[in-house]
Write a protein that binds this DNA or RNA. Structure first.
Lengths: 273, 273
DNA sequence: ACCTGAACACCGTTCAAGT
DNA sequence: ACCTGAACACCGTTCAAGT
């Protein structure tokens, strides 16, 4: 009757009977104990599901530190996605929650490290991190719902097909598919590259191969036109002193002339309970 | 006792008492009728919430058709986000569901039209559309939870602050903030630009102004260095015939040599019920 | 035929009663 | 002091009984 045995039982009943079955009562029944016994180890159901979600990520390995930063990001996000989809009972919860358990922190650190290596300024590293988490979570949620054959998305495919520009793509939008996931991730990584100042070789003739990088999960030796070269940067992210205060609070182009920054969550609105 | 009066009552009780209060019984009580009466107009709770979510989007205007494609995308996604946050009771549901009601289709069509104008090939238009929906949904969900002061995210901020590269950004990650939302959207739009073959002027000296486009919601006249020029493209998206079958099924660089395409949801796995 | 509301099969969590 | 389980305050939905 340990936290571990509880999360194990929860994961099993969730995998077997779906997310709705992961109730305190049902999990307790699985363990043959009183539902209240669970509250000895977890404050409430949410805390228990947090632990279960993190447990589902134990098998996701940290990326190889010598890989390029974008490869590392793809490895982490793809790994989380695959691991979560292996446990459909908890995938929805993984998708809805920030990664805060032991494994979530480990993988989050790997992502932040990769983003730092991308050359983004430190402040943008955190923003890009959150953007990637958001995208990954939503794509995962879509995959879970697509697996559950949500009639809404089938209808959405019809709608898209009926719209101008969507006619020829009627069979494309496999909603939560790996392909779809990789494409969106590819877009964000390309955005990071542009933002960090990488120059994409071959950008002059984009029609023939604008998308081939997405196939690049595999070693991809044959013809690597998707190489990138980094321009020299006057101030490195490290020296924040004389290297140019180009993104200090005052002249930050994003925030100057706007309302006072919301810091953390302290000054946030409080919607309900 | 019409569908409209029901959705109106649901929206009001949701705004007033939070998403959990939007139960069939509670909404019926608001209307002074039997809970079962709601089932005459909506098949189940999910269908009712779909209608309520769409109703929350009536006020989001279609973007000005003459604006640049990226401005239109920002307008639609920002508008949906703002409208949803005005109705926190339903925001979570808006975030979790594809846009299928009257207003969702209207805004989805505007997004697809904008993406078509971005120069992406038709198949990628749909992929980019879904990626944007996914990102917008997740960012909205984060904003709702941040508004609810989720302790998890405060802890996440601490974790990020403790990681290498995150030290200086301790006060940055206002989790569901407008700033954060716009940054992620900016990354995706930059990715689309790169993918569609747009060249970003000034990419040679990126350190000084890599991020200023994000301020571009306002007219932004002073100095527009974030202009883009489009290279000539051999085949226009419109002529799919002789203009070059460059992205036909056979030689699609993304899909060639992979497992058979998943089409729609028909061939999908079925996780549970 | 239509509508109603009692009833079913659940929830998460509290808390008083037992040990 | 600790643990248990009855009880509270809810759910979405079914379905038999009423009109």
């Amino acid at each position: 009757m340990s936290p571990e045995s509880i999360t194990a039982a929860a994961l099993e009943v969730g995998d077997r009977e779906g997310p709705k079955a992961m109730s305190m009562r049902r999990i307790a029944a699985e363990l043959g104990c009183d539902p209240m016994a669970l509250y000895r180890h977890f404050g409430d159901r949410e805390a228990l599901l947090d632990a279960v979600a993190d447990r589902a990520l134990v098998d996701v390995p940290a990326p190889a530190p010598d890989d390029p930063w974008d490869t590392r990001l793809r490895a982490v996000l793809g790994g989380v996605r695959a691991a979560a989809l292996r446990h459909p009972g908890i995938a929805e919860h993984v998708a809805a929650r920030p990664p805060l358990g032991e494994n979530g922190q480990r993988l989050g650190a790997a992502m932040l490290s990769a983003l730092t290596d991308s050359g983004l300024p430190p402040g943008d590293v955190v923003r890009a991190f959150q953007a990637l988490i958001a995208y990954g979570a939503a794509a995962l949620a879509m995959a879970v719902r697509a697996g559950r054959r949500d009639a809404r998305w089938e209808q959405a495919a019809d709608t898209i097909g009926a719209l101008p520009g969507g006619e020829r793509s009627r069979e494309l939008p496999a909603v939560g598919s790996d392909d779809q996931f990789e494409y969106g991730l590819h877009l964000i990584l390309a955005g990071i590259r542009a933002e960090a100042g990488w120059v994409q070789l071959g950008a002059a003739q984009p029609v023939q191969e604008p998308a081939q990088e997405r196939a690049g999960e595999q070693p991809d030796p044959p013809r690597q036109r998707d190489e990138h070269q980094r321009p020299e940067r006057p101030g490195d992210p490290e020296d924040t002193e004389s290297g140019g205060g180009e993104r200090a609070a005052g002249d930050d182009p994003v925030h100057s002339g706007r309302e006072p920054r919301v810091v953390g969550l302290e000054s946030g609105h409080d919607l309900v309970e």
